[in-house]
Amino acid sequence: MKRLAPYLLILPGGLWLLIFLVVPMVFMASVSTQEGDIINGFVQTFDFSVYGDALTRYQTQFLRSVGYGLVGTVVSIAMAYPVAYWIAFRGGSRKSTYLLLVLLPFFVSFVLRTVSWKFLLADDGLLLSPLKSMGLVAQDFHVLQTTVAVIGGLVYNYLPFMILPIYVALERIDPRVVEAAQDLYAARSQAFTKVVLPLSLPGVFAGVLMTFVPMTADYVNAGILGGPSNTMIGNIIQTEYLVNTDYPTAAALSFTLMAVMLVGIFAYARALGTENVLEAAAR
């Protein structure tokens, strides 16, 4: 009984993942190599050409998604690091209040917040109409339906996922270690680059995992804030699945996206010298 206890404890979570993650994935993998349509039904043909066709057809959206994900991640690091640093080292007794503020947007629905951005940034919206009436920006100037709006939305929605892991990593740094660096003739900037930054990299790494993956796969921001030239691969998958009911193509695109991101992440982990991705993410 005692030896079984650990297995019994992981049973609920394990079953949950098996039923709701593994089974659907196997099912979708099978769908991706089927042929047919929704009216006449689908037949398994093990034809893998759908992968090549889908990739060729939606190459642009694929590259755009990875590009948006990369830019969004870099912008997030640049914005999140100072915030996390400030809370960790200057937050004092109000640290938890500041963390709550960072998490506050999660109390409002993701879609609702993105839609409110649409009102805010619309051509005659709260931000642009006063600027236009004051003549500060051109009448035909617009923010919506641009790359900037989509990446801005992505960064806004996933920023807390970058701030929190960096904060946790910084918070765990013993201030005495920073003092030791200064005592050993490091100027403030050197104490940061030689000690604080390297010690916080696991947090940055975890933050990148937690933002790059969902940003690249996101379709809400491109759908609400972007225009036809901002379509991401998530939007394509959604359209293929729900509008065109071309299940094999949608499934093939999903698996390709997953493969691309897994390969990318492992390459990134290798390049950063982190032996174990999961360990780094857990720290």
Binding site: V177, E179, A180, A181
Partner: peptide, 17 residues
């Protein structure tokens, strides 16, 4: 401290991990 010619051994050592 970085411009003082004294060095310190910290209570918890504060080695660079």
């Amino acid at each position: 401290p970085n411009r003082r010619d004294v060095n310190m051994v910290f209570q918890s050592y504060a080695l660079f991990p």
